[in-house]
Amino acid sequence: MNLPFLSVVIPCWNEARFIGPFLDSVLANTYPADRMEVLLVDGMSEDGTREIARRYAVRDPRLVLVDNPGHSKPAALNLGIRQAKGDVVVRLDVHAEYPPDYLENCVRGLIEHPQADNVGGVRISRARDDTLLGRAIAYSTTSVFGAGNSKYRVGVAEPQWVDTVFGGCYRKSVFDRIGLFDEQLTRAQDREFNHRLRAAGGGILLLPEITCTYYARSDLREFCSWTFEAGYWPFRASRTVGRWIGSWRNVVPMAFVAALATGAAASPVSRTARRATGAVLTAYGLTALTFAVRLARKHRDPALIAAMPPVFLATHVIYGAGSVKGALERT
């Protein structure tokens, strides 16, 4: 099979900790070296990322450093796509490592499924720091209870048509057909683009044989900030583009937070509210504990039984609070 020329586009900013192992995994891929380019679109990093990337570029001419004067991720993606020479564009994340056959599997997936415009795989989450909290945060994103029906997070056994994938491998003609990433969106630009793609009749395919390892945030403050923003942006982005681009999994945590807030407000004067709120919390606690036990068994890590329920609760409450702000904000 003659593989098409491939352009790998990588938005990047201040990633000195991760850029070396990441580039090692990308440049070690089995995709024919004369059939690919790697465009690292850097937001003028100041932590040594650019110097590391330049050393790699000297050794491997496939790697090209592209300047992105701002830190905007959608602007970085668009700069890379405009410069891309390939018929296929793969978007990669620096906080991940990719097996040797990743790129080839992505491109072959597009070739073997002509009805697909975007192909992706399953994201395996690992902790950036091997602490109990770090492991609990990483594993929470692979659980149905923590991630809902996000298939690229929880995994699939066979190919499935989905609403989004991690990163993505696109036919470049898609960008000519429906445009580039929306640079108004600091976050959720992937979600908006894939929603626009599906609305235009395009297909997004998740293939289980495509996998990568993603290093999830382990720091509590970073985790809380990221989770709040993750809840906020589906609503903010939807308002910005003038259409709903989320799914039911974006609404459930907001409903949970609203129910708890309503119950807490009414409980001092209503026995029914106290009982209902207590029932909701009891059911939630038992469900969280059940999923915690499953994860502890799966990963052979008994300490997760105690760590997972608080992480689940923090995830849902913080995400829901972000969604409430995003839904109510009018500016």
Rank of each mutant, 00 (worst) to 15 (best):
L304D: 00
P69A: 12
T30C: 13
L110I: 01
E209K: 12
R198Y: 09
D42E: 00
A306G: 04
W161Q: 14
V107Q: 04
P208G: 06
A292W: 01
L133V: 14
M44D: 08
Y215D: 06
A136W: 04
P4W: 03
D129C: 15
R217K: 14
W248I: 15
F291I: 08
F166P: 03
G48T: 01
V38Y: 00
F312M: 01
G168E: 00
C212F: 11
N68L: 01
S270I: 03
C106A: 05
V89W: 07
A157E: 14
P74F: 11
S270M: 02
E37V: 02
M44N: 09
V94Q: 05
E329S: 13
L6N: 03
T282N: 14
R128T: 11
R239T: 09
L281S: 12
T290M: 14
E222M: 14
G134S: 03
H95W: 13
S140P: 00
I52F: 10
A264H: 06
V58G: 03
D190R: 06
F312E: 00
A96M: 07
D182E: 03
R17K: 15
E229R: 15
I210W: 01
E158Q: 13
V311Y: 04
L180P: 10
I81C: 09
L65Y: 01
V144H: 12
W248L: 15
N2H: 08
G121F: 02
E222P: 11
V9K: 08
P61T: 02
P21E: 03
E329Y: 08
T240W: 11
W244T: 13
T141Q: 13
P310H: 08
R126E: 12
A96F: 03
F228V: 00
R91W: 07
V58L: 11
L6F: 04
Y98A: 04
N105Q: 14
R221A: 15
